[in-house]
Design a protein around this nucleic acid. Structure first.
Length: 512
RNA sequence: GCCCCCGUAGCUCAGUGGAGAGAGCAGCGGUUUCCUAAACCGCGUGCACAGGUUCGAUUCCUGUCGGGGGCACCA
């Protein structure tokens, strides 16, 4: 079985069956109230307008057909036109068996046959110092998106692009050189402990800084497949510009981006003859388009103006601008007992990724940096984040994994096969239904580039699991079908929670 | 002036074109002979405002107000 083969889960099969009867796509949702069934759909309400029939009438028709569908125990209608379904014990057993059969791949492969070669470029901070917390959000977010894309079946490469030449880097080198001579940094240059430390060492401070950045990110569980430097892109600028509509004005060479969807034209070659950053972007994006089906950029909110610019370049090269996917994330604020901690590269009070990880650990840092949507500014209370207790959702979720691992360790129990027939109770049904949602959650998180959907789901799954597990009477009946069913349920839970944690770069410990 | 993001509980924030909107923190009270109590249970008059689209809007559209970020021949 290839990764591209989309798993049709028990839930999807049921949806498809209803869709066939309804003659329209059906999405089954879990109602908030138990008396509305295990799953419900509003398809009759959606169809009522187009079919010019009362929604309840359509729902009743669907209910009659649904009642005989496999896995459906009971189907009812409810005003104004909902269709509510109750599922049979057999459905739960089937759903569980499928999850176990799929193993670690369960929920993956949502790309189907639409697999792409995708490059995710992230962090890409100029190597003038340690990675800051802002770049850490970039990395945590970008890496999660990369993990989601890979899980969906895409071929993913992580890329770090950095500036190793240019005026800013020369200023940085000059600052270190000055420090080595025991002099003050040049006008607008870099100072601080970091520059003094570099001055104490040998060699090019830019390369040394990149090594340190790589080490910090590796510790943060981000591994890059490629490191591109500006100077290696430079020779391609001329060819890139030759492929774009350009003109000369005031001694500079401009690209006519205003005709490609940008709001103004951009200078590529300054009057001085020096290429602008934009010229490097052009050459670099041309590379990406040649090598990948899709280029993902992860950029801070201060770069939102780049979206139009980069897409304009894609158009200029005759490529579909949709192949350029620019993800924008907002700022990070750290607080400590309510007090703001400042972050500024130019001031001395930088909060670095390493400092954050030293303080709260990799797991909490990765979790907190993605559990909010990227388009929202983020506040992390480091005092709370480092607390290794129930207050901390990341440990609450990890605990699920530790608990399930402990069960199989202690009991020496193997995964039951086949899943025995058992009439699940309410908590067990809830847990199976939650697990059954996972493929949909993973697919949506991938499509929307929204890892926060994964953390949100993981917390809900943890809630369901802990509730299920807390009733000790469930652990008593050794050797029974009930116990075997529950072991299967815990095995599936363990697998899904491990996957959720992996998708956001958090460890899944066997013990805590 | 123009562009982007955001206004949901005391705080930090999830979330959804549908049936009583939900997590964590903060606060109060319970549960332990049990393959980890890092757990479970209970206590909540909240979708900035005004129009519009819709059978139905907190969700989509427009406007207003408020917060943040942009608008370089910087990188």
């Amino acid at each position: 079985m290839g990764v591209s083969e989309t798993t049709r889960t028990a839930l999807v099969r049921l949806q498809d069956e209803l869709a066939r009867v309804a003659g329209a796509p059906v999405v089954l949702e879990r109602p908030t109230k138990a008396e509305h069934g295990d799953y419900a759909t509003n398809v009759a309400l959606r169809l009522a307008g187009a079919r010019k029939r009362p929604p309840l009438e359509i729902a009743a028709e669907l209910a009659r057909a649904a009642a005989s569908a496999p896995g459906v125990e009971r189907a009812e209608t409810a005003p104004p036109g909902f269709l509510n379904l109750w599922l049979s014990p057999a459905w739960y057993g089937d759903a569980l068996a499928e999850m176990l059969a799929a193993g670690g791949d369960y929920g993956g492969g949502s790309a189907g046959t639409a697999r792409e070669r995708v490059q995710v470029e992230m962090v890409s901070a100029n190597p003038t110092g340690p990675i800051t917390v802002a770049s850490a959000r970039n990395g945590a977010y970008g890496d999660s998106v990369a993990r989601l894309l890979a899980f969906a079946g895409h071929e993913v490469e992580r890329e770090y692009y950095y500036n190793d030449g240019g005026t800013q880097m020369e200023l940085f080198r000059a600052s270190v050189a000055a420090a080595r001579r025991g002099e003050e940094p040049p006008e607008g240059g870099y100072g601080g402990d970091y520059v003094r430390e570099l001055a104490a060492g040998e060699g090019d401070p830019v390369e040394r800084t990149i090594e340190l950045i790589d080490a910090s990110l590796e510790r943060f569980r981000i591994r890059f497949d490629g490191w591109s430097r500006q100077t290696e892109v430079e020779p391609e600028i001329a060819d890139a510009l030759a492929a774009l509509p350009t003109y000369q004005r005031d001694g500079a060479i401009w690209v006519r981006t205003s005709e490609l969807g940008d709001d103004k034209d951009r200078v590529a070659i300054r009057a001085s003859g020096e290429p602008t950053y934009f010229a490097f972007d052009a050459a670099y994006i041309r590379r990406k388009l040649a090598r990948f089906d899709r280029a993902v950029y992860v950029l801070g909110a201060d770069h939102h103006g780049y979206v139009a610019r980069l897409k304009a370049l894609a158009r200029g090269f005759g490529a579909d601008p949709d192949r350029i996917d620019v993800l924008i994330y907002q700022l990070v604020h750290l607080t400590r007992g309510g007090e703001a901690t400042k972050m500024s590269k130019r001031r001395g009070d930088v909060v670095t990724l390493d400092e954050l990880v030293d303080e709260i650990g990799v797991d909490a840092a990765r979790w907190y940096l993605v559990d909010r949507g990227p388009d929202r500014s983020l506040e992390i209370d480091v005092d709370l984040a480092k607390e290794r207790s129930r207050k901390n959702p990341v440990y609450y979720v990890q605990y699920v994994h530790a608990r399930t691992a402990g069960i199989f360790r202690e009991a020496g129990a193997a995964q039951p096969d086949p899943v025995p027939t058992h009439e699940p109770d309410g908590e067990e049904r809830n847990l199976v239904k939650r697990l059954a949602e996972f493929p949909r959650v993973a697919a949506e998180a991938t499509e929307r580039r929204a890892p926060q959907l994964v953390t949100d789901f993981a917390i809900r799954l943890a809630d369901d699991f802990h509730r299920f597990y807390h009733d000790r009477s469930r652990h008593q009946v050794v050797g029974s079908p009930e116990q075997a069913f529950r072991l299967a349920l815990m095995q599936a839970t363990r697998s899904v929670i491990a996957r959720c944690l992996d998708l956001v770069g958090v460890a899944a410990p066997d013990r805590m």
